[in-house]
Design a protein around this nucleic acid. Structure first.
Length: 746
DNA sequence: GGGATACTAAACAAGG
DNA sequence: ACCTTGTTTAGTATCC
C-alpha cells in the first residue's frame, strides 16, 4: 500500500519536475526539455507570483512599491553579479579584495546575461559575503526608494498644504483649520505608513538598520526604527482614523512627535530625527550594530575583509590564522581561489543562507502571529484598516513576509525545493516512524508546521502539488537543473558521481565518531533542517551513520533514525530511501551484518569500502577540466556539485581548509586504502566505547558473509547487548529533543 | 558502446 | 495479516 502510494507520487513527479523551466533552457537544452508539464506550472507560478506585486502600474501602493522595489533590487543584484563576474568592479571597492572577488566568481557566469540569472543561481555563484553585500545593497536601495517615495508624497502634501494655506488666507479660518487638519492627518497617516513599512521590512529582515542607511534614507523616516514595544502605540495611533489628527498625534506620543512637528512646521527639513537614537532597539542594539559593522566594513573599510576577523580566516571550515590583512589576502587567494572546493563551499553556504532565509520567513511569520495575538487583537482592525490605503500595508505584509529578501522572482526559480511536500509519503512515513520507535516526528509534524509554511513561499508557485511531493525523483530533477548545489546536476548522476569522489576523504573524518565529514559537519545543521538532498551516496551515509557510533554498529532501524535525524530530506521525502538503504546494505560488501541477541546490526568493513573508491577518484580531474573549459551552465553545475562533494571531504588536499592542527590530524588518515585502519576509530572508539568496539572493529575488516556468522558466535551476547543500546541511545536521545513531537505521534 | 557505479522500484522470503 | 528486515533482480542514468 505504502509503496504504491509512494511510487505513484514518484511517478507523477518525474514529468513535472524536469521542466523546471527557465533554467533548464539555458543550462542545457538536453535534459529539461521533457518537462513540458512542469514548465506550465512553473510559469504559472511565476505569473501568479509576479501578479502579486508586479502590477505596479499607475499609482503604486506601498505594497506594490515594495514589490516593485524588490524586483528592482533583484535587477540590481543581477547587474552586480554580472559585474562581479566580469571583474569590472567589486562591490566594496576593496582594494585588496578586488582581485580575489573577481576571481572567485565563476567565469561562466560572465557569459550569462543578468536576466538569465535567477536569484538561486546568484546564490550559487556568489560567496556568502558577496551575497550579504548584495542583500545589503538591495536593502539600501529599497529603503532609499521607499524613502524617496514617501518623500515625494510628503512634498506633495506639503505643497498642497502651502497652497491651501495661501488660499486659506482668503478663506474663513475655520475652513483653513479643517483643511490643515486634514492634511496633517494625511501626513500622519503617511508617516505611519512609513513606519509600518519599515517595520515590516525589519521584520522581514530586509532592513538591518545599517549605519550608512541609517544616516541617509532612514533619517527621513523618524519612526523607522520603532522598537517593538512601541508598536502597539503605533498601531493604536493609526487605529484612530476618525479622530482628529491632533488626537492621534497625542496618542502616538514619542513616535510621532517628530512627525507632528513635521506636519505642523513642515518647513523644517524632513531629516530631523537623530539618526542613531531611532535605530537603537532595546535589545537589538548589539545585534544591530554587529551586522552593521560587518556590512560597513565589507563595503567601505579597506582595511578589513568580511572573511577576515579576529585574526583568522572566516572562510567556512577554515580558521587559518593570519597575522594581518595582507597575509589573509594572500591566504585567501591561495587557499580559496576559484576551484572546485571553493565553489562547492560557496554553494553550500548559499544553501545555508537560503535555509536561513526560510527560517527567517518562518520566524517572521511566527512573530507576526505572536504580535497579532498579543498586541493587535485589541486593535486588530486598526492597522489593517487604514484610512488612507487599507490594502497597502497588509498586502505588503502578506506578500513580502514569506520571502523577505527576494520576493517573487526568487520563488519562481526555486523549483528544486519542490520536494518539500511530504504529503503522499507521509502516511507511509509515519508508519515507519512509529515502528521505528525512535524519532520521526518530523515525518508528519514538521512538514505542516515548520516546513510547509515557510517553504511554501520559496517553492515555485507554479509547481503544482504534483511536483511538490516529490520524493526521490522529484528532488533530483528539480534540483538538478538549478539550484541545488548539492543535489544536483543531473539527476542521479550528480548524486552518484559526487559521492564517490568525496567519500574518500569522508572516511577519514567520518571515522571520528564525534566528527562528521567536513561538509557534513559544517553544514550538518543545514542538512538537518533543509530539505536538501545530501550530496552523498547512500553507502557513504550509511557508513557514516555506523561509524559515528562508538561501537560502529547500528541496526537498520537505527540507521533509519540517523538518516532522519541528520537530514531533513529524509524526513520529509518519501520513504523510498529506506528501500535504498536496505538495498545498499545488502548490496555492498562493505556492510557487514552481524547478528546478536538483540537482533542484527550492521557494521562497516572499511577495507571493502575503501576498495570501491579508487576508480571514482578519477572524477574530479574531469570536473576541474570542465570548470576550466568553461562550459555551459549545466556542466558547470555538475562540476559544482562535484566540487561540493569534494569539498565535503575533508579537504584533504587543502590544508588551508583546516586548522593546522586539525588538518594534520586528519590528513594522516588518508583517504585511500589506508583509510580503513585509520579511522580514528581506534582513538575514539578505544577510549570511550566499551570493550566491544575494538573487537568489532576488527570484525569490520573481515569479509562480509561468513565472518558475520562466525563473528556472531564469537561475540554473542555482549557485543550487541549493552553497547548497542548505549550507543544508539545517547545520540538518539540527543535528537529526541528535536524529534520529541514525533515520538508523541507514535 | 561497454563497464562501473548509483538510484529507484519491486518482488520475495523470513521472522516477529 | 501486517510490518520489518534482508535479499535479489531489473531498469535507468551518468561518467569514464
Amino acid at each position: 500500500m505504502m509503496v504504491e502510494s509512494a511510487s505513484e507520487t514518484i511517478r507523477s513527479a518525474p514529468s513535472g519536475q524536469n521542466g523546471v523551466g527557465s533554467l533548464s533552457g539555458q543550462a542545457d537544452g538536453g535534459g529539461g526539455s521533457s518537462g513540458g508539464g512542469a514548465a506550465g506550472p512553473a510559469a504559472g507560478g511565476a505569473g501568479r507570483d509576479s501578479a502579486v506585486g508586479a502590477d505596479s502600474n499607475g499609482e503604486m501602493s506601498p505594497a506594490e512599491l515594495l514589490h516593485f522595489q524588490q524586483q528592482q533590487a533583484l535587477q540590481v543584484a543581477r547587474q552586480f553579479l554580472l559585474q562581479q563576474a566580469s571583474g569590472l568592479s567589486s562591490p566594496g571597492n576593496n582594494d585588496s579584495k578586488q582581485s580575489a572577488s573577481a576571481v572567485q566568481v565563476p567565469v561562466s557566469v560572465a557569459m550569462m546575461s543578468p536576466q538569465m540569472l535567477t536569484p538561486q543561481q546568484m546564490q550559487q555563484i556568489l560567496s556568502p559575503p558577496q551575497l550579504q553585500a548584495l542583500l545589503q545593497q538591495q536593502q539600501a536601495l529599497m529603503i532609499q526608494q521607499l524613502q524617496e517615495y514617501y518623500k515625494k508624497q510628503q512634498e506633495q502634501l506639503h505643497l498642497q498644504l502651502l497652497t491651501q494655506q495661501q488660499a486659506g488666507k482668503q478663506q474663513p479660518k475655520e475652513a483653513l483649520g479643517n483643511k490643515q487638519l486634514a492634511f496633517q492627518q494625511q501626513l500622519l497617516q503617511m508617516q505611519q505608513l512609513q513606519q509600518q513599512h519599515l517595520l515590516n521590512l525589519q521584520r522581514q529582515g530586509l532592513v538591518s538598520l545599517q549605519p550608512s542607511q541609517a544616516s541617509g534614507p532612514l533619517q527621513t523616516l523618524p519612526q523607522a526604527a520603532v522598537c517593538p514595544t512601541d508598536l502597539p502605540q503605533l498601531w493604536k495611533g493609526e487605529g484612530a482614523p476618525g479622530q482628529p489628527a491632533e488626537d492621534s498625534v497625542k496618542q502616538e506620543g514619542l513616535d510621532l512627535t517628530g512627525t507632528a512637528t513635521t506636519a505642523t512646521s513642515f518647513a523644517a527639513p524632513p531629516k530631523v530625527s537623530p539618526p542613531l537614537s531611532h535605530h537603537t532597539l532595546p535589545n537589538g542594539q548589539p545585534t544591530v550594530l554587529t551586522p552593521r559593522r560587518d556590512s560597513s566594513s565589507h563595503e567601505e573599510t579597506p582595511g578589513s575583509h568580511p572573511l577576515y576577523g579576529h585574526g583568522e580566516c572566516k572562510w567556512p571550515g577554515c580558521e587559518t590564522l593570519c597575522e594581518d590583512l595582507g597575509q589573509f589576502i594572500k591566504h585567501l587567494n591561495t587557499e580559496h581561489a576559484l576551484d572546485d572546493r571553493s565553489t562547492a563551499q560557496c554553494r553550500v553556504q548559499m544553501q545555508v543562507v537560503q535555509q536561513l532565509e526560510i527560517q527567517l520567513a518562518k520566524e517572521s511569520e511566527r512573530l507576526q502571529a505572536m504580535m497579532t495575538h498579543l498586541h493587535m487583537r485589541p486593535s486588530e482592525p486598526k492597522p489593517f484598516s487604514q484610512p488612507v490605503s487599507d490594502s497597502p500595508l497588509p498586502a505588503a505584509l502578506r506578500t513580502a513576509r514569506p520571502r523577505p529578501l527576494t520576493g517573487g522572482p526568487r520563488l519562481s526559480t526555486l523549483p528544486r525545493c519542490s520536494q518539500l511536500n511530504p504529503v503522499p509519503g507521509s502516511s507511509s512515513f509515519s508508519k515507519v516512524t512509529v515502528s521505528a520507535a525512535d524519532s520521526f516526528p518530523d515525518g508528519l509534524a514538521h512538514p505542516p508546521t515548520s516546513a510547509a509554511a515557510p517553504v511554501t513561499p520559496l517553492r515555485p508557485p507554479g509547481l503544482g502539488s504534483a511536483s511538490l511531493h516529490s520524493g526521490g525523483p522529484a528532488r533530483r530533477r528539480s534540483s538538478d537543473k538549478f539550484c541545488s548545489p548539492i543535489s544536483s546536476g543531473k539527476g542521479r548522476r550528480g548524486e552518484a558521481r559526487l559521492p564517490p569522489q568525496p567519500e574518500p576523504p569522508l572516511p577519514v573524518t567520518s571515522s571520528c565518531p564525534a566528527c562528521l565529514p567536513p561538509e557534513l559537519a559544517q553544514n550538518h545543521e543545514f542538512y538537518k533542517n533543509a530539505d536538501v538532498r545530501p550530496p552523498f551516496t547512500y553507502a557513504s551515509l550509511i557508513r557514516q551513520a555506523i561509524l559515528e557510533t562508538p561501537d560502529r554498529q547500528l541496526t537498520l532501524n537505527e540507521i533509519y533514525n540517523w538518516f532522519t535525524r541528520m537530514f531533513a530530506y529524509f524526513r520529509r521525502n518519501t520513504a523510498t530511501w529506506k528501500n535504498a538503504v536496505r538495498h545498499n546494505l545488502s548490496l555492498h560488501k562493505c556492510f557487514v551484518r552481524v547478528e546478536n541477541v538483540k537482533g542484527a546490526v550492521w557494521t562497516v568493513d572499511e577495507r571493502e569500502y575503501q576498495k570501491r573508491r579508487p576508480p571514482k577518484m578519477t572524477g574530479s580531474p574531469t570536473l576541474v577540466k570542465n570548470m576550466i573549459s568553461g562550459l555551459s551552465y549545466g556542466t558547470l553545475n555538475a562540476s559544482y556539485q562535484a566540487a561540493l562533494a569534494e569539498s565535503s571531504f575533508p579537504l584533504l588536499n587543502s590544508p588551508g581548509m583546516l586548522n593546522p592542527g586539525s588538518a594534520s590530524s586528519l590528513l594522516p588518515l588518508g583517504h585511500d586504502d589506508a583509510g580503513a585502519p585509520v579511522e580514528p576509530l581506534p582513538s575514539n572508539g578505544s577510549s570511550s566505547p566499551p570493550r566491544l568496539s575494538p573487537p568489532q572493529y576488527s570484525h569490520q575488516v573481515q569479509v562480509k558473509e561468513e565472518p558475520a556468522e562466525a563473528e556472531e558466535d564469537r561475540r554473542p551476547g555482549p557485543p550487541m547487548g549493552p553497547p548497542n543500546p548505549s550507543t544508539a541511545g545517547p545520540p538518539e536521545d540527543r535528537d529526541l529533543e528535536e524529534e520529541l513531537p514525533g515520538e508523541e505521534l507514535s
